[in-house]
C-alpha cells in the first residue's frame, strides 16, 4: 500500500488526515512540521506522496517543499493550504498539486490518487 506523509502543525487536522487516509488504506506518516518531515525523509523513510501544509510556525511549507525537493525531487508533493493566494507564489509551482483546505477531503484524496497514478504510470 502507498505511503502518504502528512506535514501539518494543527494536531486535530493531522489526526483527521491520519484517520481519513488510513480509512482509505494508505500508510500514513505523520510530521508535525517541516523539520520533522525532512528528518523523517533523511532517515530513509521515503513516502510515496507528501501532503504539505504551508502556514506553519517554525518552518513554513514552501521552505519545507524546497528542502524536500533538494533531498529527493522524485517525491511528489501536494500543497494543502487554507490560502488560495499561495498559488501566486511561483515556489509553489514546483509542487505536484495544490489543494485548498476544506472540510470535504474528496479533492485531497482525488489529488493523492491522481499523483500516485501519475507516478505509477510515469
Amino acid at each position: 500500500m502507498a505511503s502518504v506523509m502528512i506535514v501539518e502543525d494543527e494536531d486535530n487536522q493531522r489526526l483527521l488526515y491520519v484517520r481519513e487516509l488510513g480509512d482509505e488504506g494508505y500508510d500514513v506518516i505523520e510530521a508535525a512540521g517541516g523539520r520533522d518531515a525532512i528528518d523523517i525523509i533523511r532517515s530513509g523513510k521515503k513516502p510515496d506522496v507528501v501532503v504539505l501544509d504551508i502556514s506553519m510556525p517554525d518552518m513554513d511549507g514552501i521552505e519545507t517543499l524546497g528542502k524536500i525537493l533538494s533531498q529527493d525531487n522524485s517525491i511528489p508533493v501536494i500543497l494543502n493550504t487554507a490560502y488560495s493566494t499561495y498559488k501566486d507564489n511561483f515556489m509553489t509551482w514546483s509542487a505536484d498539486a495544490y489543494v485548498v483546505k476544506s472540510g470535504d477531503l474528496t479533492e485531497l484524496k482525488t489529488k493523492i490518487k491522481d499523483v500516485l497514478e501519475q507516478r505509477a504510470g510515469g
Partner: peptide, 25 residues
C-alpha cells in the same frame, strides 16, 4: 480578512472534516 480566511479555514476545515468523518463512521 486574508488571515481570517486562513485562520478560520483551518479550524473550519478541521471541523468540517471531522464532522464528515462522524457522518461516515
Amino acid at each position: 480578512a486574508a488571515f481570517v480566511a486562513h485562520e478560520i479555514r483551518n479550524p473550519l476545515a478541521t471541523i468540517g472534516g471531522w464532522a464528515r468523518s462522524i457522518l461516515k463512521k
